[in-house]
């Protein structure tokens, strides 16, 4: 347990100290959301209707940003060697890393979402629904991203490849995240149905992600 707490606090410290990685994710989110009206026009009724989808897409892209450093930074400086040989199970260590990553990059997106909802003319119910679905769904994005980070760890320029590998896997999360937000705003499906599935996806990826990532790292060894 101490080992996992140690890795959690270390990763959170690193993320806060190294160039404010968390804030860059939020900034990217803000920029993506700002660009949308330039492309589709400033019609407030239209923006309110597709606002949840814009926010979800923005959060999805923003959560991919820092993934390439999630494991690669430990690989580059040799820390991964020590983590691999330590007594603490690799799966749990990776889960702790993913949790730290979510707390410093995913959670700020959830907190920023209501503010960005204002830009898109979302009413309070819609904003609340989007924030809630993001809170439930972004951990799934991080855990799925963990697999991509583990697969591309030894590659230079792994960042682009991660996006290509991970984005298709995030389709279900996007579908049920946006569906739950829309269900809360316009119906006709009750909010609970897609939201429960979204939570299920998150729990499932929290289990599969660390195991698949650990397997990828172990088999990646020569």
């Amino acid at each position: 347990m101490t080992a996992l707490a140690a890795i959690l606090t270390r990763d959170m410290r690193l993320s806060v100290r190294q160039g404010g990685g968390a804030l860059i994710g939020v900034l990217f989110f803000l920029i993506v959301v700002t660009l949308m009206p330039f492309a589709i026009g400033p019609d407030l009724a239209l923006l309110a209707r597709i606002g949840p989808a814009i926010l979800w897409l923005g959060a999805l892209l923003a959560s991919l940003l820092a993934l390439d450093r999630l494991i690669a930074s430990d690989y580059d400086d040799g820390a991964l060697d020590l983590i691999l040989t330590a007594r603490a199970p690799l799966e749990l260590a990776l889960a702790a890393k993913a949790l730290a990553h979510w707390l410093t990059t995913g959670l700020p997106l959830v907190i920023a979402a209501p503010l960005l909802g204002l830009l898109l003319n979302l009413d309070p119910t819609a904003t609340g629904a989007v924030a809630l679905t993001l809170a439930a769904g972004t951990p799934a994005l991080t855990f799925i991203g963990l697999i991509g980070a583990a697969l591309t760890v030894a590659l230079r320029r792994g960042g682009l490849l991660i996006a290509v590998l991970v984005l298709p896997l995030t389709v279900p999360v996007l579908i049920f995240g946006v569906a739950a937000s829309n269900a809360a705003i316009v119906g006709p499906v009750p909010f609970g149905v897609p939201f429960t599935i979204l939570c299920g996806l998150t729990l499932m990826s929290a289990v599969i992600g660390p195991f698949a990532a650990a397997a990828a790292l172990r088999h990646g060894m020569e």
Partner: peptide
């Protein structure tokens, strides 16, 4: 103890 130091510069 490998060639790399496993140290984080910002800590």
């Amino acid at each position: 103890l490998g060639h790399q130091d496993a140290l984080k510069p910002s800590l």
